[in-house]
Amino acid sequence: MTLERYLAIRRYIEVGFWGALFSIIFVSETAVQIIDVNRLGLGYQAWEVICWEGTSIFTLLLLVPVLLFFDRRYPLRWSNLARAIPAHILFSVLFSALHVSIMVAMRKLIYWFNNSYYDFGNVAEQFVYEYLKDFRTYALSLALIYLYRHVVLRLQGEASLLSEPDVGLNAEPSEQPERILVKKLGREFLIVVNDIERIEASGNYVNLHIGDRVYPLRETMTKIEQRLNNKQFKRIHRSHIINLDYLQEIIPLESGDAQVVVKAGAILPMSRTYRNAVAEAV
């Protein structure tokens, strides 16, 4: 599978990865717990052990998107660790509280269906115990997320705006740069800004689309828009900017919004807020 093909279906693979990972953890943890219950003669039934592990793992899986959302708001970068680390530590408490609350509610419901009663025990004592486990899970999940991102960015190549002229690269610093530096697998090369077909918001990055290649740039949509030639690049949506040279068709919608078809075949949403400005420019 090529990198471009993978990036096109990466969301499905990422969802599948988390599902497979937590399924493996569920099966292994459940098997160990059942063996321990039988070995120690604790008297619990198999369905109870499955209930404990299943509700815990399933709730953690549900909270992965919450973790990803928070990390987009407070990414762990060298430039903002003093702010991001305390934020993540505080959020880990909320993360654990959500995990425990949903998990206990599900267990009580399952026990009720089995004509039994689930006792969580002393709330304060049990929450401290669960938080220590949840913090470990939280930290390991973040480590996996950042390792994965690092590998993808290394393969994909990360773009950066030029702020100073690079010797031998024929690049001039400008409020509207003509070239963007890309670092990929230890190599550096330049891409021409006018070759960018469209720009799409993606978390803490914007993705620069050139043909079937996608280069992530650590920048906001607002700031990158300010650095581009506004006669050639137009904002069509809060998450999309297009190069008018690659605009193929505008399809009006009854809502007042529209859809934009670019020459590469992608169909993008256009907000009514930007529709008139684009129509005037073309």
Rank of each mutant, 00 (worst) to 15 (best):
L190I: 13
I89C: 04
H240T: 05
P173N: 11
H240S: 04
S23A: 11
L247Q: 00
A171C: 14
R213N: 13
A277V: 13
E254W: 15
Y274K: 02
A279T: 12
E130R: 10
Q126V: 14
A20F: 05
K223R: 11
R227A: 01
N243S: 03
K108C: 08
L68A: 06
S101W: 09
Y148M: 08
A264M: 10
E219Y: 07
V32S: 10
A124P: 07
Y148L: 05
E164W: 09
L162W: 10
F22V: 06
N38P: 02
G203A: 01
N194D: 09
R198G: 01
E172P: 09
Q45H: 15
V262Q: 02
F233H: 00
V192C: 11
A105V: 09
I242A: 00
L3M: 06
Y117N: 13
L68R: 02
I196D: 00
V66Y: 06
R275T: 07
P177A: 04
N243E: 03
R218S: 02
E53Q: 06
A31F: 10
K184H: 14
R149A: 08
Y74I: 02
V262D: 04
P177W: 06
A281N: 12
V278G: 06
I267A: 08
R275Y: 15
P269A: 02
A8G: 15
R5C: 08
L181Q: 13
I145W: 02
F70S: 01
Y148Q: 10
H237E: 06
L153E: 05
D134W: 00
A201H: 02
E48V: 06
L268N: 05
S23H: 12
R179Y: 11
I210P: 06
Q232E: 08
C51D: 07
L94R: 12
I57Y: 03
P269G: 07
Y205N: 00
G157Q: 02
A139L: 05
G265N: 01
L247S: 00
L181F: 15
M103P: 06
L147C: 15
R218Q: 05
D212P: 04
M103L: 10
